[in-house]
Design a protein around this nucleic acid. Structure first.
Lengths: 206, 206
DNA sequence: CATTGACTATACAAGTTGTATATCCAATAT
DNA sequence: ATATTGGATATACAACTTGTATAGTCAATG
């Protein structure tokens, strides 16, 4: 408990600057190695020109740094365009748009691959990413519900949502993007997602 | 260089027995924790009632143990039924069968989840699993080629193969099986894979 | 001009993989 | 019968993790 504490614009901005430098160094390392295996706080700190303890001061833990790197990448990934999707009149066109937005998002920074791998090494960080992904599922649920409009049963809607959730996930994008461009992956996934919706709206024999 | 070496049935079977005991302990640990994060050779060795060095004697490294655990699980996962699939007259029925076989495979041992996570922590082990998965892609390529029979372009076949490859992968199964039974996942994936093939055979406007 | 905040320096605890060396003991070959 | 061998053990070590603790530096602030 300090006797006379104070806020310092100079200190604050300097701290924010080093914070961003650490995040940038972390993302850079993930991009270069394309694997989470060699992602250690010591290497990140050295690359950022700070001490490992400074990383702890800023992020608290390895998981904290990973979350900060992800959120930084996410902020500039175009996900804000999802807001406009909700206002679109045609829910089918909106679905196409969602697929497109996520293809752009998954592809816009190679570090995303490393972050997805990190879900396995750090369970708590994994939970944090799962929570962020669940927003996509909720969005899809609203969209599919609008498209089907009671022409499909609850079970069928659930199937379509889960299927499209998988199709718009990073693992799917990562697998498909090894053989084709981001644009081609997008077209392929849009077609498949449309078919998944159609399979639900048109009553069919199992 | 031993002066007089010898083979011992007693020694060999005893070593094989401890080897299996270690593999079983590894699989048990993966099943229990449902995460690769706490999978250490020390814990596995203690669970198997041996020293950590014995694990190294048998498997050479952490990666070696993981591969052995995977192969052990794979051997009893029903993948041998894939051989009979190749002999089926109807390639569409064969595709249904492949989907079914892999749903059974991914679901038959919870330790598979941990092994899939281990791809991220150990890059070399990851490559080993990728290589095993590529066999599935080759199988699918043959099957889709038979189904389409030149009614579809090379590009379209490639799309269908990659799509179905993703749909029959573990990440897809794992995601879908959180909300439904293995049988329901299988039915859903069979339907989706059939649609993916139809989307290719029936020429369609993009 | 003393205090504060961010950062540094150094050290430590506890965990991991992997290697090295010496030892034990039962199964084997001569 | 006896020396040898193969598998396992005991113990130690190197190098690397994450995370915490303590003391010190130095410019910005009240």
């Amino acid at each position: 408990m300090p006797k006379r504490s104070y806020v310092s614009p100079t200190r604050a901005s300097a701290a924010a600057e080093t914070r961003e430098r650490i995040i940038a160094a972390g993302a850079r390392l993930l991009r270069k190695d394309a694997s989470i295996a060699n992602f250690s706080l010591d290497v990140v700190a050295k690359a950022a020109g700070v001490t490992r303890l400074t990383v702890y001061n800023q992020f608290g833990s390895r998981r904290g740094l990973l979350e900060a790197v992800f959120d930084d990448i996410a902020r500039e990934g175009g996900l804000f365009e999802l807001a406009e999707v909700m206002t679109m009149a045609d829910p089918r066109a909106a679905l196409d748009r969602v697929v497109s937005i996520f293809c752009t998002f998954w592809s816009h920074d190679p570090a995303i691959d490393g972050l997805n791998q990190a879900m396995a090494t750090d369970p708590e960080f994994g939970e944090a990413l799962v929570a962020r992904n669940e927003r996509r599922r909720e969005l899809l649920t609203g969209l599919i519900t609008r498209i089907t409009e009671k022409r499909a049963g609850k079970r069928a809607v659930q199937d379509a949502v889960d299927l499209i959730f998988v199709l718009t996930s990073y693992p799917t994008f990562g697998a498909l993007s090894q053989q084709r461009s981001t644009e081609d992956v997008c077209r392929l996934l849009q077609m498949t997602c449309r078919d998944a919706v159609d399979a639900v709206t048109q009553e069919r024999k199992k």
